[in-house]
Simulated scan of single mutants.
Amino acid sequence: MGVRMKFIHLSDVHLGIVPDKNKSWSQDRYQEIYDTFKIVIESAIDQKIDLILIAGDLFHGQPLLKELKEINYLFEKIAPVQVVIIAGNHDYVKDNSFYNSFKWSKNVHFILNDQIECVEIPELNTNIYGMSYHSREIKFPIYDDVIPANRNRINILLGHGGDVNHIIVDENKFIENGFDYSAFGHIHKGYINRAKHFAYSGSLEPTDKNDYGEKGYIIGNIDFKSKKLDLDFVPCAQRQYVTLKINCNNSVTNHALVEKIVDKISEFGSNHIYKVVLTGARHESMEFEVENSLKDFNICEIIDETHIDYDYGKLLTQNDGTIVGQVIQKLQGIDDAAMFYAVNALLRTKR
Rank of each mutant, 00 (worst) to 15 (best):
Ile328Pro: 00
Lys245His: 13
Pro80Arg: 04
Gly162Met: 00
Gln332Phe: 02
Asn152Met: 07
Asn107Val: 04
Ile261Pro: 11
Ile175Phe: 09
Asn113Glu: 15
Asp263Arg: 12
Ser226Lys: 15
Tyr341Ser: 07
Asn96Phe: 13
Gln62Tyr: 05
His283Tyr: 10
Gly16Glu: 09
Ile323Lys: 04
Gly220Lys: 01
Ile116Gln: 10
Ile142Met: 14
Asn247Lys: 15
Leu53Arg: 03
Gln31Glu: 15
Ser203Gln: 00
Leu58Val: 11
Asp223Phe: 02
Lys189Val: 08
Leu74Glu: 12
Asn247Trp: 03
Asp20Arg: 03
Asn72Gln: 06
Asp163Ala: 11
His186Asn: 15
Tyr191Leu: 02
Glu76Asn: 13
Ile49Thr: 14
Phe140Ser: 11
Asn344Gly: 02
Phe7Asn: 05
Pro122Gly: 12
His186Met: 01
Lys189Gly: 04
Lys94Asn: 08
Gln62His: 12
Ser182Val: 02
Asn155Asp: 07
Ile116Glu: 08
Phe224Ile: 11
Tyr99Asp: 06
Val262Cys: 07
Asp296Arg: 09
Asn247Glu: 13
Tyr143Arg: 06
Glu42Gly: 02
Gln318Phe: 02
Ile17Met: 10
Asn177Glu: 11
Leu346Met: 14
Ile147Met: 08
Leu65Tyr: 15
Asp208Thr: 05
Asp211Val: 00
Glu67Thr: 07
Asn247Arg: 11
Lys350Gly: 00
Gly216Trp: 02
Ile71Gly: 05
Arg282Leu: 03
Tyr191Asn: 09
Asn100Ile: 01
Tyr241Arg: 13
Ile328Met: 00
Arg153Glu: 10
Glu32Asp: 13
Ile45Gln: 07
Thr349Ala: 01
Ala338Leu: 11
Leu51Gln: 07
Ala345Gln: 02
Lys139Met: 06
Gly269Asp: 10
Ile246Thr: 12
Ile218Lys: 05
Ile71Thr: 15
Gly159Asp: 09
Asp163Lys: 06
Lys69Glu: 15
Glu205Cys: 10
Cys236Thr: 15
Phe198Ser: 06
Ser203Trp: 00
Ile192Asp: 06
Arg4Val: 13
Gly162Gln: 05
Gly313Ala: 00
Asn152Tyr: 11
Ser285Glu: 15
